[in-house]
Design a protein around this nucleic acid. Structure first.
Length: 399
DNA sequence: TCTGGGGTCCTAGGACCC
DNA sequence: TCTGGGGTCCTAGGACCC
């Protein structure tokens, strides 16, 4: 039996966060809704189609969104809930094919070439997947069907909302070339500006541009990448993703920080959040990075690598404190702090590498265990434990 | 309009080694 | 003496994606 000519599906949930919120609160159905930070410095993470009609877009400051749409309902995000629903959606996709490549919490590529004996066409597979997601979790999704990953992704985008689009093999360039360059994967505002300077507006323009011209503006790597996509050359296979490469936590404060004691306490809190999540994933990391965004939005980072992997709050904090010293923060207002641990390795072996400090290590393991049973908040360092005076206004700065 | 939080990948420069 | 070339590792920053 013949192969499917378009064996790749891109499944993308429609306004995922908003639709999950609607499952829990039917009052949000049919009205303009945005999920986003409500703490004064928040931005829109997800907007309903009713809100988009007013010009509300994701990444837009919530203040601006309210200005454009005075009737907008803004809901604070509940990431734990989204992760749960996402995991059910991924289970549904894997019940069709084992070759599922998740690329974010709400989208994935599927290779359905193995299903040609069970379904007459990829179009039928896609329709069944959409119905299964609708029936089992009550959410709308869109699916793109194509011969390559990139075209499948573009197809799902053009199928939205709640739709299905197949780009037949052989018609890729017809579909692609009239579209705006900003729809190319890897073209954001900076690259778009560069291309605009060359008079390149559509994907077809990219395909027709001489390589030397693209390279002179974008560098060899990016130029080749964009040119390949614009010619619909995309040989990447759908493959299961390996584990995460880094774990991070960051926080934008409702008002800028200046007091070094407060800055250290917030940094410690972030170290603790990262440690809790490393423990949950059973990993440790060789590098620690501190990120600081100042009141003028200038952003710097300081990082260091160590031979021994770190996983526990105290070890991450020791490094973070010296990174803070190197960041020259004195006298500048701080808008955001972030901590990331990277170069991850399997934690079981990593934790045994911490030699010569068995007692402290045992204490740290005990913390991991309690957290596993009772949640991350069950154990927190004394220095960042909420006191009565700060429980209301400090412990969750952006909520 | 005044800019979140979680990530990934790429590039460039400097240190260091042979 | 004042200077080659290549490779690798580390760090910082930036662009991008959802």
């Amino acid at each position: 039996m013949a192969q499917f000519a378009e064996p790749i599906l891109h499944v993308d949930m429609d306004s995922f966060f908003v639709e999950v919120e609607r499952l829990g609160d039917p009052g949000l159905i049919g009205v303009p809704v945005a999920v986003g930070g409500t703490g004064g410095r928040g931005v829109v993470a997800s907007a309903s189609y009713e809100a988009r009609a007013f010009g509300v877009r994701s990444a837009m400051p919530v203040g601006e969104a309210r200005r454009r749409c005075p009737s907008l309902t803004v809901v604070s995000p509940e990431h734990g809930r989204y992760a749960e629903v996402s995991s059910t959606v991924f289970d549904i996709m894997r019940s069709f094919t084992p070759i599922v490549e998740g690329i974010s919490i709400d989208e994935a590529f599927l290779d359905v070439s193995g299903l040609r004996l069970h379904y007459p066409s990829p179009l039928v597979v896609a329709a069944r997947i959409r119905s299964a997601i609708r029936d089992q979790v009550g959410l709308p999704s869109s699916v793109g069907i194509a011969s390559t990953k990139f075209i499948a992704k573009m197809a799902s985008k053009h199928a939205k909302p709640d739709g299905l689009l197949r780009v037949a093999s052989g018609t890729e360039l017809e579909f692609l070339h009239p579209l705006d360059v900003s729809e190319l994967w890897g073209v954001g505002s900076a690259t778009r500006r560069q291309l605009d300077g060359l008079g390149i507006r559509t994907i077809g323009d990219v395909a027709r541009a001489p390589m030397s011209l693209l390279e002179s503006r974008l560098g060899t790597g990016a130029a080749r990448h964009l040119s390949d996509l614009a010619h619909a050359r995309d040989p990447r296979r759908v493959e299961e993703r390996a584990g995460a490469r880094s774990v991070s936590a960051e926080n934008t404060f409702a008002s800028d920080l200046a007091d070094i004691d407060v800055i250290e306490r917030e940094t410690l809190r972030l170290c603790d959040q990262v440690a809790a999540r490393l423990a949950r994933s059973g990993v440790a990391g060789h590098s620690v990075m501190l990120k600081v965004r100042f009141s003028d939005f200038a952003t710097i980072s300081r990082s260091s690598r160590s031979e021994a992997p770190v996983a526990h709050t105290g070890d991450i904090w020791n490094t973070a404190r010296s990174l803070l010293d190197r960041a020259e923060i004195a006298g500048r207002g701080i808008r955001l702090l972030g901590i990331a641990v990277g170069d991850l390795v399997d934690g079981a072996s990593a934790r045994q590498l911490v030699l010569g400090n068995e007692r402290r290590n045992a204490a740290a393991e005990a913390v991991d265990e309690v957290r596993e049973r009772f949640g991350a908040a069950a154990v927190i360092p004394a220095r960042i434990a909420p006191t009565t005076w700060d429980r209301e206004d400090r412990s969750r700065p952006d909520r």
